[in-house]
Each structure stands twice: as C-alpha cells, then as structure tokens.
C-alpha cells in the first residue's frame, strides 16, 4: 500500500510536464506496475520500473534493444519469475499467479514472434484460447473484420504472410476478450500499408475500452496510435511523455534512441 502511494506521487510529478495525459482516466487504472525489477541470472535488466495503463488507453514502451521492454511485458504476463515489485490488474495484485490465470483474468499477449502455431490451422489458432470476457469478439465478427483469416481458415497458421500472422495474433486475443493487450513490436518487419492497418486495429480496440501496452521501436508509428509513452533505457524509465510532447520532440528522441 505504501508502494502504491509513493508511485502515485512520483508519477504525478512526472505528469506535470505531460498536458495530454487525461486526468479522468488516471483514476481507473487497469494495469499498475510498481517498483518492478527483473533479472536474468545475475544480470539486472529492469530497475524499479513503475508504469500504468488505463482502460481505452494506448501506452508505449520505447527504447533500444536490450532496454528491458520485452522483459517488462513477460513479467506482466507472468512468464518471467525472476522479478520483484508489484503488478496489479484492476486493483488486484497478481502476485505469483500463473500465466494462464493472468490470461484468464484478461491479459492478452501478442509476442514479438507473433506466436502462431504451425501445427494448428488458422481457425484453431483463433479458437484455442478460452473466452474470458463477455465483450469478446464472436468468431463471425473476427472473420468480418479480418476477411483474409476467413479465407485462409483451414491453412496451417504459419503458412500466412508476416502481416497476416500479426493480424491472426491480434485477432486471437480479441476473440478471447482480453481487456489489456500486451503488443510486442507489432509493426516490426512489416510493409507500411500493413503497419497502417495495424494502427487502425489498435484504434478500434482502444475505442472499446481495451487497454494496450505497446512495445515499439518505430517512433513514427507509436506517435500515431498512443496516448502516452514511457522511454526505457538500461532497464529504467527515463522519460514519461504525453503524445504531444512526444511528437514535438520526435527528432531529438530518434537521436537519443539511436534510431
């Protein structure tokens, strides 16, 4: 509880500079990560990281390779046991809950390799996870929104193109009804037109009150979809910016990130 108050105080300090962070959303936090540190063996990859995501909010984690972005997502998902700090969803501490319990509580993981099963068809990839929330998309709606997945529903999942696999990975967590999506570099290696389409999907999801925590190296893309940005360097949050500041300082940030 004391952790909670200190983090609120410190992030409130950071937010005085961020005019675009809407005050109303701040009260209903969906995901709250407080004082998270994580290790790989002896190596510390995250130090005292505190971030939060509200419903219907898109928040990015921006940083170079090795800044600890993916480890943060894995910790939230419960896939990285070597960690300290608290992670709570809708006010409930996730503690040591297993990854599958977290997924059923509403966290949807879209890993950086898309995580499509080669031994399952496209339809099976979509139908594998349980439906965890009444707002889950029915399969008909998924197919209507992603016609290509309907066309290819009987193909092995990995016979799809990179962009289609990304669509499938996102469609899968929507079919599940996840309330908080963890998207790990969805735009990586994809053609601009597909990246644009992914942006549309993220805005659609956002409109339904789903929270998105987005790991992105593509600063331009991040600025078109996100409300707030956390800059990570060497396992620490070094900046917390609203999207207006982020866009204004884009050139500087690109240099800083070495991108």
């Amino acid at each position: 509880m004391t952790d909670d108050t200190t983090s609120t105080a410190s992030s409130a300090g950071a937010r005085t500079a961020t005019a675009s962070a809407p005050a109303a959303e701040r009260r209903s936090r969906m995901l709250e990560v407080t004082g998270l540190s994580a290790w790989y063996g002896e190596a510390r990859v995250l130090s005292d990281v505190s971030i939060d995501v509200a419903p219907g909010e898109v928040v990015t984690l921006v940083g170079r390779n090795g800044a600890g972005k993916t480890t943060l997502l894995r910790s939230v998902m419960g896939l990285h046991p070597q960690m300290q700090g608290t992670i709570s969803l809708d006010g409930a501490d996730l503690g040591r809950r297993s990854a599958d319990a977290r997924a059923r509580a509403g966290i949807g993981w879209v890993p950086d390799d898309r995580g499509i099963y080669a031994s399952l068809t496209v339809a099976e990839n979509l139908l594998l996870p349980p439906v965890v929330h009444p707002d889950a998309w029915p399969i008909e709606r998924v197919y209507e929104f992603f016609p290509v997945l309907h066309e290819r529903r009987d193909f092995p999942g990995t016979k799809l193109s990179g962009g289609e696999q990304q669509m499938l990975a996102m469609a899968r967590v929507l079919r599940m009804g996840s309330r908080l999506l963890l998207l790990d570099e969805p735009s990586e290696g994809l053609a601009p037109v597909i990246v644009q389409r992914i942006g549309e999907i993220i805005r659609e999801i956002k409109g339904q009150g789903v929270g998105v925590l987005l790991v992105e190296q593509n600063v331009k893309f991040a600025s078109t979809v996100a409300d707030r940005h956390y800059l990570l360097a060497q396992g620490q949050v070094v900046e917390h910016l609203g999207n207006d500041d982020f866009t204004a300082r884009e050139g500087e940030l690109l240099t800083y990130l070495g991108m």
Partner: peptide, 21 residues
C-alpha cells in the same frame, strides 16, 4: 488441439489462458 499447442509451445499456450499443467 490443446495437446498439439502445448507440444509445440508450452509457455505460449499457458500465456493464452490454458492450464497446461
């Protein structure tokens, strides 16, 4: 289907809400 998924990628299958255990 669950066995095939868990055979291919146990960790990912847990992260998709399936109690592989």
């Amino acid at each position: 289907m669950i066995v095939r998924a868990a055979t291919e990628a146990p960790e990912r299958t847990r992260a998709l809400g399936i109690n592989v255990g």
